[in-house]
Amino acid sequence: MFEWVWQPSRLVYVCGTVSVGAVFPPACPGGKWRWRMLVDGRLSPEEGKAKTQDEARQAVEKRFAAFLDRAALKPAIEGK
């Protein structure tokens, strides 16, 4: 259903077969993790920076959950 998948130079949040967000590692040691929400009902992606990978992942997950709520969508239960 929802999973994080490593692709070259980024960690992608996937819902089924759709990439909905991504987290990018710091460009230099001590730098910030960047995140981008790709599917959220906007014309352009929402993005930001976080101190850690976990914080960046949480930002993407939180915004995707808000998108699902606004669109009155619920994740399908696998096998049904």
Score class of each variant (00 low, 15 high):
F2V: 14
F2I: 10
W4V: 07
W4Q: 06
V5H: 05
V5K: 09
W6V: 10
W6Q: 10
S9Y: 05
R10N: 04
R10F: 04
V12Q: 05
Y13Q: 07
V14K: 11
V14N: 04
C15E: 07
G16I: 00
T17W: 01
T17D: 11
T17V: 12
T17A: 11
T17L: 13
V18F: 00
V18T: 09
V20M: 01
V20F: 00
V20D: 01
G21L: 02
A22R: 08
V23N: 00
V23M: 07
V23W: 04
F24Q: 02
P25D: 06
P26T: 05
A27N: 10
A27L: 14
C28D: 07
C28L: 11
C28K: 15
C28W: 05
C28S: 14
P29Y: 03
P29F: 04
G30N: 04
G30M: 06
G31I: 03
G31A: 05
G31V: 02
K32A: 13
W33D: 00
W33P: 01
W33V: 05
W35Q: 02
R36P: 01
R36E: 11
M37D: 03
L38E: 06
L38P: 00
V39M: 06
D40W: 07
G41A: 06
G41V: 00
G41P: 05
G41E: 08
R42Y: 11
S44A: 13
P45W: 14
P45Q: 14
E47L: 13
G48A: 10
K49S: 06
K51G: 05
K51P: 05
K51Q: 14
K51R: 12
T52C: 11
T52Q: 13
T52L: 14
T52H: 12
Q53T: 06
D54A: 13
E55A: 12
E55I: 09
E55Q: 12
A56M: 07
R57V: 06
Q58I: 07
Q58K: 12
A59K: 13
V60T: 07
V60N: 02
E61H: 05
E61Q: 13
K62T: 15
R63T: 09
R63F: 06
F64G: 05
F64D: 00
F64Y: 15
A65K: 04
A66G: 07
L68M: 10
L68C: 10
L68H: 00
L68Q: 06
D69I: 01
A71F: 02
A72M: 08
A72F: 08
A72S: 15
K74L: 09
K74V: 15
P75I: 02
P75L: 08
E78D: 08
E78V: 09
G79A: 06
K80N: 10
